[in-house]
Design a protein around this nucleic acid. Structure first.
Lengths: 213, 213
DNA sequence: ACTTTCTTGTGAAGAATTTCACAACCGAAG
DNA sequence: CTTCGGTTGTGAAATTCTTCACAAGAAAGT
């Protein structure tokens, strides 16, 4: 009721995530409240932007004092959908998969990896922590029985489209895609692409362009 | 001379990278030319956007025919700064570092990892392919002697700022940062952040928000 | 109570980006 | 040599995003 109905932009949402991280840091440092300027510094943006972003969800700050860290943290947690548990499956137990499986921030945020699948028979049957890697053929069944909502797709580009479509048909509604392909999926599936080649090339573009100016 | 001087936006550059990938795919499939609509499909954007993006760098397409794949591919390669070799150092030989070291797309694009550093004495001295992992203390010296231009930063969040500052002082001009911290560095250093937590949270935000609409 | 200092929330201005829409152009076919 | 289906390049319009700037609120000191 107090929450405004306007849908924030993709980039605004990413900034919210950065604010949340900044608040966690500040809280760990013993701070109790923080002005927009400090949040901006920690999140790599401007104070005005912070205020605009946050005001889209309500009035959290107190004039003269800044934002109360703990309650804003809780609120952002809620807004980002982190107050519920998410059941995640990892598809692809290669190096990227391994790195993501161990990534400490995922666990900290309540993402629970409940299943791992891989097409390689050499890998299936082995265990990572307490999860056994299952063959790709069991994917649909596993996704359903484990009630998986989100899939981390860390398979080669060549199989990504097929595997993603299968995961969706099994009921997955969100995909974090590390394969360098544009997935063609029904619009009711949320896909977020992470493409390291693109990131590196954005860097080389800037470095390369410098010489001309 | 024919190239326009207007600096494209960050997101436009990322799209260029996606177009390049699409062109490589299409060429591998035996295509010779492609209309903007097809590139749009493969890059996850719209035809008008493709044309606007490309026209910012010159007139590559031919009306009625589409874009000639090979020559546009070469041109984008050049524009993105990929026609020269980049000397890259990997800092942090953990799981993320290992995944990135093996990431096939980096090699394919001419990124040469010429040095690896890690603070853990257990790891230093071991070899990945033909590169010996060197101790963090040798970082400055190694960056200079190997003429490293770009650093892939895959260290824990707690040490990222210090390590990044040291790399910069040794002469690095671009950083691909995987640590979940906002690096505070001089503005002449290009930094590109890759934050998997942010990506996942952007996903949960969307999934969570659905129920309300 | 009053003044000072600090900082939010926000309308309005400004900037940037995306979409629209269509003239100009291309090759082919008749 | 004219017409036709297809497609680019691009101003202009529309939309979205960011920055500005300032009234309003909050505490603390006098």
């Amino acid at each position: 009721m107090t929450t405004s109905p306007r849908k924030p932009s993709e980039s605004a949402v990413r900034r919210l995530s950065l604010y949340l991280r900044a608040l966690e840091e500040l809280q760990a440092e013993g701070e109790v409240s923080a002005p927009s300027e400090l949040l901006a510094l920690r999140a790599g943006t401007t104070a005005a932007q912070v205020r605009k972003d946050l005001s889209a969800f309500g009035s959290f700050g107190r004039r003269g004092l800044g934002y109360p860290i703990d309650s804003l943290r809780v609120r952002l947690h809620e807004i980002l959908g982190l107050s519920r548990k998410w059941r995640v499956a990892l598809i692809g137990a290669g190096r990227i998969g391994a790195a993501l499986f161990e990534y400490p921030h995922f666990r900290k945020r309540g993402f629970e990896i409940v299943a791992i699948f891989d097409a390689d028979p050499e890998k299936t049957g082995t265990r990572w922590r307490d999860i056994t890697i299952r063959p790709a053929a069991e994917m649909e069944e596993g996704i359903q029985s484990e009630k998986v909502q989100i899939v981390i797709l860390a398979v080669p580009a060549t199989s990504a489209q097929t595997v993603a479509a299968r995961a969706v048909s099994a009921g997955v509604s969100g995909i974090l895609n590390f394969a360098p392909v544009q997935l063609q999926l029904p619009p009711n599936v949320e896909v977020n692409d992470v493409d390291m080649a693109v990131e590196l090339e954005a860097l080389t573009f800037s470095l390369h362009a410098r010489k001309r100016s």
